[in-house]
Design a protein around this nucleic acid. Structure first.
Length: 479
DNA sequence: TGAAATGTTGGGGCG
DNA sequence: ACGCCCCAACATTTC
């Protein structure tokens, strides 16, 4: 009788280019594919409502993809260790395979699983999955982790290329004994009463098929002008692959090789491709940092930021969250986030700068809000991004880089399409005043149907004053 | 993957 | 014709 292996799907919800699954299939053993919904394991970093919506659809897509390979996805809910132990026992499996994860809670879980399973003679094997390079493979000359992006990415690019992506395994022998599986619908990962995500399929197609479509679409179009186009939030000029990558519906190796193939076929676009690949590089950098410095989600990477005088009020935080700061570009971004589970990357930088610098609110409050509202909420990227903006991170933006929320709009949303899309009550304002309605003459406001303080808020802080206060606050922790 | 303050230059209006 | 001033345009420095 052939041995059985349990393949545990975690955050790599795909069947193509999944090293652990290929390795399991190659053994010729019978395979159990499972997913465990453990709502307590991540602690305070349990998926937010938007991520849960995505997870539901991603799991449905994965189950479908597995069925196409002749198998089925076993769903269980509960404490990971006991659920896996039970499943191993029920199936008589002698081995557990999975992809690695790098979140501190997930890495600890792997250790604890190893300690549980080893004495029982069950092999626990972890495989690469969601990264281009394992953190152990990229080190400085001194053997330590990189703390600066450029040398990190240079080192990555000097290494042998990531392995070419593989198709899904051709032949899998599935376990055919009886195993109970829960009903995905019963997990209630999707919102009900009200179903605020009823229109999200207009924007998103969770699952590997949707991810590959998105990838192809990008290399058929926007890549040619990526360097410039990606700065304009009203354009569909970015990949929007972030949620697909977070849930592992597509691997970064697939993206990397698609980009290299494109660069090879269109050499004159090599510069655009490099720009794009460096974004993948920042993702990689964030993951490696989180692996080496597991406190990044909670504590400033740069120690002197422990004494930063955060003073922001709960009311200001609330106004920021709701998109009622009185700065149209900020409010547009926050409302895009609320309505679609996503925000354009440049606008993420601008609203994050506004929260931490204009409002002097701790970056963790912003990270938490993003965590709950983003479909692509990802611990490494989110924590890294917020610390980068706040100036407390590794290779962070210098603290004095304070975005002007008005001029950013004038530079990257010249014709006001983005602001008008998400702040429709200002739509009739002429371009000239769209990003700064408080400067508009009374008759212009009236003609546009706007009453400041009633139909649209006045600015909750004055830019110049806020900027100077931020510089003063940062100066107080220098040295 | 800034913005603002400060410095420099050069054209043109003007007495 | 000439110097003076203003200021836009650009460059450099500072936060």
């Amino acid at each position: 009788m052939t041995d059985t292996i349990v393949f545990w799907f975690r955050q790599d919800l795909r069947v193509a280019d999944l090293p652990g699954l290929h390795a399991a299939a190659a053994t010729g053993c019978r395979l159990v594919a499972c997913y465990i919904l453990d709502e307590t394991a991540p602690g305070e970093w349990a998926p937010g409502a938007a991520s849960r919506w995505w997870l539901h659809h991603s799991l449905a897509a994965l189950a479908h993809d597995i069925e196409k390979l002749g198998g089925r996805l076993v769903l269980r809910r509960g404490e990971t260790r006991s659920e896996l132990t039970a499943l191993l026992e029920e199936s008589g499996a002698r081995a557990l395979y999975c992809s690695r994860q790098y979140e501190p809670w997930a890495a600890n879980l792997e250790t604890s699983l190893h300690n549980t399973l080893a004495p029982r003679g069950i092999a626990f094997k972890r495989f690469p999955g969601c990264l281009l390079f394992e953190p152990e493979a990229i080190a400085t000359q001194g053997g330590g982790p990189f703390r600066v992006f450029t040398p990190f990415w240079r080192k990555c690019c000097r290494e042998t290329s990531p392995a070419p992506p593989k198709d899904s395994p051709h032949k899998i022998t599935w376990f055919d004994g009886p195993l109970t599986s829960e009903n995905l619908e019963g997990w209630q990962l999707r919102p009900t009463s009200p179903d605020w995500a009823s229109h999200w399929h207009d924007w998103w197609s969770p699952g590997s098929d949707g991810a590959l479509r998105r990838l192809r679409q990008f290399f058929d179009g926007a890549i040619a002008n990526y360097d410039e186009g990606r700065n304009h939030p009203a354009l569909d000029a970015t990949t929007r692959l972030s949620p697909h990558l977070h849930f592992g519906e597509i691997s970064p190796r697939q993206v990397w090789h698609a980009a290299r193939a494109f660069a090879h076929s269109k050499p004159d676009h090599a510069g655009q491709v490099d720009k794009f690949l460096s974004e993948l590089g920042w993702r990689e950098f964030s993951y490696h940092l989180l692996h080496h410095f597991p406190e990044i989600p909670d504590k400033p990477f740069r120690e002197q930021f422990n004494k930063f005088p955060w003073v922001g009020s709960p009311q200001a935080l609330r106004a920021w969250q709701r998109g009622e700061t009185g700065y149209p570009l900020i409010d547009a971004g926050m409302r895009e986030l609320w309505h679609t589970g996503y925000m354009h990357n440049r606008i993420r930088m601008v609203v994050a700068s506004f929260l931490t610098k204009h409002l002097l609110i701790h970056w963790r409050a912003g990270a938490k809000w993003f965590w709950d509202t983003l479909v692509d909420a990802d611990l490494a990227n989110n924590s890294g991004g917020w610390q980068w903006v706040a100036g407390s991170g590794a290779d962070a933006s210098p603290y004095f880089r304070i975005f002007n929320p008005v001029t950013q709009g004038e530079k990257f949303d010249q014709d006001g399409i983005y602001i008008r899309r998400w702040v429709p009550e200002l739509a009739r304002l002429p371009d000239r005043y769209l990003g700064r309605p408080w400067e508009a003459p009374e008759d212009v406001l009236e003609a546009a149907g706007i009453e400041l303080g009633a139909t649209y808020p006045r600015p909750i802080v004055e830019h110049r004053e806020a900027r100077e206060a931020a510089l003063e606050a940062y100066a107080s922790i220098k040295g």
